[in-house]
Simulated scan of single mutants.
Amino acid sequence: MTIQHRHETTDDIAAIEAVTIAAFADAPHTSHTEQFIVCALRAANELTLSIVAEEHWQVVGHVALSPVMITDDQGRKADGWYGLGPISVLPQRQGQGIGSRLVEQALTELRTMRAAGCVLLGDPAYYTRFGFQAHAGLQLPGVPPGYFMALPLHGTVPEGIAHYSDAFNAAA
């Protein structure tokens, strides 16, 4: 299996949407709006990184990264934080390391960008292998604390409330 990772092009948009729909079709804990979120991030120019996993000229996976604002109780903002997700892999290709390599590529690029860190909402059993951990002082309202995790890339994890782009409210 020779998987190539690269940034999306306009020719990939339909394939990314199809992969995202397929990846979340039978997933628990989803509102099935992930493809709309990616599209809304792109339209708002908030899709900081959009990386595809490609094999034999077919997109088999995708990861999106976008800015996240973290505000403490005094209104101070932590700069340079990004949210990882949605991340999608074709169902028939899941469990083959494609998602892991997309996460690793995304984190490598964030380090190159000198990002402060990365947050995500996901299964701790999966994402802790990359160094993500829940932090009591960092919260995403309405989310069980153990499932909202952070990975500092430069410095420490700030305390406060994380705010994702309004694109994460996209429903169509």
Rank of each mutant, 00 (worst) to 15 (best):
I21V: 14
F24M: 08
C118N: 08
P91V: 12
I37H: 00
F24Q: 07
A53T: 01
V63R: 01
N169I: 07
G95F: 15
G99D: 08
G122K: 09
F148T: 01
T2G: 06
F168R: 00
L107E: 08
F36S: 07
Q94T: 05
V89K: 04
E159A: 09
G97Q: 04
L102H: 01
G85L: 06
G160R: 03
A14G: 03
W57D: 15
L41M: 06
A53D: 02
I13L: 13
L121T: 03
Y164A: 07
L121K: 06
G99V: 05
D166C: 04
G142Q: 03
A136W: 10
Q105Y: 00
P144H: 14
I87N: 04
T71R: 05
P152A: 14
S66P: 02
C39V: 00
A170L: 11
Q133G: 11
I3L: 10
E46I: 09
D79E: 15
V19P: 10
G137I: 07
G80S: 04
A15L: 09
L153Y: 11
A115S: 10
L140W: 02
A116T: 14
A78R: 02
V38T: 05
Q96M: 14
M69Q: 13
S50D: 01
A15E: 04
Y126F: 15
D123T: 10
P152D: 07
T71I: 09
H135T: 13
I16E: 12
G85C: 08
A170V: 07
M69N: 00
F148V: 01
E55L: 08
E46H: 14
W81K: 03
A23L: 00
P28H: 06
L65K: 06
D26R: 10
T30V: 12
P144I: 13
A125K: 14
I21A: 04
G83A: 09
L121S: 07
T128R: 14
H5Q: 12
T112E: 15
G131V: 14
D79Y: 10
L121G: 04
I161R: 15
A162W: 00
R6D: 02
L47K: 06
D123G: 12
R6W: 08
E54M: 04
S31M: 12
Q4L: 13
L140S: 00
A167Q: 03
I16C: 11
Q92H: 15
P86E: 04
V52T: 12
Q4G: 02
P86Q: 06
G83N: 02
L138H: 05
R93V: 05
G95A: 12
R129N: 13
A43M: 13
E17L: 00
I87L: 15
L151K: 06
S165N: 02
T156H: 15
R101Q: 11
T2Q: 11
L90D: 01
V119D: 01
P86R: 08
R93T: 08
T9I: 04
A106W: 07
E54L: 06
A40Y: 01
G117F: 06
N169K: 14
Y147K: 10
L138D: 01
I98C: 14
A150H: 05
M69Y: 00
L102R: 02
T10A: 11
